[in-house]
Simulated scan of single mutants.
Amino acid sequence: MTIISSAAAGGTSSVTAAASDTLFADYNMFLELLTTQMTNQDPLDPMDTSEYTQQLVQYSQVEQSIQQTGALQDILSQLASQDLASASNFIGRTARFDSAVAGLGDAPAQWSYYANGTPASLTATISDSSGNVVQTLTLEPGQQGTYAWDGTMANGATAPSGAYSFAVSAVDASGEALDVTINSMAKVTDVVSTGSDIMLGVNGIRMSVSGLVAVSDGTDQGS
């Protein structure tokens, strides 16, 4: 089981601390100048207090804003940790994503497909991350099904590990094209937080948990 958290929260806290340090340094400098000015002012013509009172109010408002930002960041960090802990329950289970992209790694790349209608023919293409078609194949006609690709390309060579896309062209008996929904499937091996998103490690690639549409017990690779 692998769970990785991002250092983004710590980095953001450092930025907040730096902002506070800068503010307090400026504030202390302002007080020193104000004290010097008040000490050396003409008793018969004292300085106008409205200006420095306004500046004190502005410093106070900025300080409150920094404190509120820090509190909000703490809350977001806690929520991210909770999301990460919750997502760790997916490890070892088979996840299905609303995506045509699947990983080819220790296991075959796997997809499920569903045609909106009754197809008379189904043709599938598999493309690499650069969009190059590496395999074209004919699927058994049917409204839905699954396909597992072991990496064998059209030229007989074995494709390297990585991300591959699956596309299906479906035509009914009258020659009309049908819409096809494609999902990728793989077993979850680790969970990673990027600071803004939770990513699931699946067969050598990472997929956002926001694209998750189904989870099974890890033994069912079907649709």
Rank of each mutant, 00 (worst) to 15 (best):
residue 164 Y to P: 09
residue 213 V to Q: 11
residue 210 S to V: 11
residue 218 G to Y: 01
residue 90 F to C: 11
residue 135 Q to H: 09
residue 144 Q to T: 10
residue 148 A to R: 09
residue 191 V to T: 12
residue 185 M to S: 15
residue 99 S to W: 02
residue 130 S to V: 03
residue 185 M to L: 15
residue 108 P to H: 01
residue 184 S to K: 07
residue 202 V to M: 12
residue 194 T to Y: 05
residue 106 D to A: 13
residue 145 G to M: 06
residue 209 V to A: 13
residue 133 V to P: 04
residue 129 S to H: 04
residue 141 P to I: 01
residue 168 V to T: 13
residue 113 Y to D: 07
residue 107 A to Q: 14
residue 103 G to L: 03
residue 167 A to Y: 09
residue 180 V to R: 00
residue 190 D to C: 08
residue 177 A to V: 09
residue 94 T to S: 12
residue 129 S to E: 12
residue 95 A to W: 00
residue 120 A to Q: 12
residue 198 I to H: 08
residue 90 F to S: 15
residue 187 K to T: 14
residue 180 V to P: 04
residue 116 N to E: 13
residue 179 D to F: 00
residue 163 A to R: 04
residue 144 Q to G: 05
residue 173 A to W: 02
residue 104 L to Q: 10
residue 188 V to L: 05
residue 190 D to F: 10
residue 136 T to E: 11
residue 154 A to Q: 14
residue 122 L to A: 11
residue 121 S to N: 14
residue 123 T to C: 04
residue 210 S to H: 13
residue 95 A to M: 01
residue 91 I to A: 11
residue 90 F to R: 15
residue 145 G to K: 02
residue 121 S to W: 03
residue 155 N to S: 14
residue 144 Q to P: 03
residue 199 M to A: 12
residue 210 S to A: 15
residue 204 G to Q: 06
residue 175 G to F: 01
residue 149 W to F: 06
residue 195 G to E: 02
residue 138 T to Q: 11
residue 137 L to A: 09
residue 209 V to P: 00
residue 106 D to C: 00
residue 138 T to Y: 02
residue 122 L to Y: 10
residue 210 S to T: 14
residue 179 D to W: 00
residue 100 A to C: 05
residue 122 L to I: 12
residue 140 E to V: 15
residue 138 T to G: 06
residue 193 S to Y: 04
residue 142 G to E: 01
residue 149 W to P: 08
residue 184 S to F: 06
residue 165 S to R: 12
residue 126 I to D: 10
residue 114 Y to W: 07
residue 168 V to S: 14
residue 130 S to L: 05
residue 183 N to V: 04
residue 128 D to W: 01
residue 91 I to P: 12
residue 144 Q to H: 10
residue 152 T to A: 08
residue 152 T to K: 09
residue 216 S to H: 09
residue 185 M to I: 15
residue 162 G to P: 05
residue 128 D to Y: 02
residue 148 A to T: 07
residue 190 D to L: 08
residue 109 A to S: 06
residue 209 V to T: 09
residue 188 V to E: 08
residue 213 V to R: 10
residue 189 T to C: 05
residue 98 D to W: 01
residue 194 T to K: 08
residue 110 Q to R: 14
residue 175 G to W: 00
residue 198 I to D: 05
residue 198 I to E: 06
residue 95 A to K: 03
residue 162 G to T: 03
residue 152 T to F: 01
residue 118 T to F: 00
residue 181 T to E: 15
residue 181 T to I: 08
residue 197 D to R: 04
residue 151 G to L: 01
residue 200 L to P: 10
residue 132 N to A: 13
residue 112 S to L: 00
residue 114 Y to A: 12
